[in-house]
Computed example of a mutant assay.
Amino acid sequence: MTDIHPAWRTPWRNMRWAFVAIWMLFLGYPLGAVIGSDHSAPVKAIGYALVGAFALVYLLASVYVLSGRTGPDRRGVPVFGVLALLTIGLLPIIGEGAFGTAPFLMVVAAFTFPYGWAATTICGVVVCALAIPAIAGWEQDLGLVVVLVAVGFTMLGFRTIAMRENERERAEERRRELDAELAVVAERERVARDVHDILGHSLTVITIKTELAGRLIDLDPQRAKAEMSEVNQLARDALAEVRSTVGQLRTPDLPSAIAGAESALLAAGITADLPGRNIHTPNGSLFAWVLREAVTNVVRHSGASRCVVVIDDTSITVRDNGSGMGASGFGNGLRGLTERVESAGGTLSVTSDADGTAVTAVTAVRT
Rank of each mutant, 00 (worst) to 15 (best):
S40N: 12
A41H: 09
P42Q: 03
P42I: 03
V43E: 00
K44N: 06
K44H: 03
A45C: 04
A45R: 01
I46A: 09
G47R: 00
G47P: 00
Y48L: 09
Y48N: 02
L50V: 08
G52D: 10
L56P: 05
L56M: 13
V57W: 01
L60C: 10
L60H: 08
L60R: 06
A61D: 04
V65H: 10
T70Y: 14
P72Q: 11
R74Q: 12
R75P: 06
R75F: 03
G76A: 13
V77E: 09
V79E: 01
F80Q: 07
L83C: 03
L83D: 02
A84Q: 13
A84K: 09
L86H: 02
L86G: 00
T87I: 05
I88P: 00
I88W: 08
I88R: 03
G89I: 07
I94Y: 02
E96L: 04
E96P: 04
G97M: 03
G97P: 03
A98T: 02
F99P: 00
F99L: 01
F99S: 01
T101V: 10
A102C: 09
P103T: 05
F104Y: 09
F104H: 08
M106R: 10
V107N: 12
V107I: 14
V107G: 12
V108L: 01
A110D: 06
A110C: 10
F111N: 13
T112K: 06
T112E: 09
T112N: 07
F113H: 09
Y115C: 11
G116R: 15
G116H: 07
G116T: 14
W117V: 14
A119V: 13
A119C: 08
I122Y: 04
I122V: 13
C123L: 15
C123A: 14
G124Q: 10
G124N: 11
V127A: 12
V127H: 01
C128I: 14
A129S: 06
A129Q: 07
L130N: 02
L130Y: 11
A134Y: 04
I135G: 06
I135D: 11
A136F: 07
G137A: 01
D141K: 08
D141V: 13
L142H: 13
L142E: 12
G143C: 06
G143K: 09
V146Q: 11
L148E: 05
L148H: 10
L148G: 05
G152S: 06
G152V: 06
F153M: 10
L156K: 05
L156V: 08
G157F: 14
G157I: 09
F158W: 08
T160I: 14
T160N: 11
T160V: 13
I161Q: 14
A162G: 12
M163V: 15
R164P: 04
N166Q: 15
N166M: 15
E169L: 15
R170P: 07
R170N: 13
R170V: 14
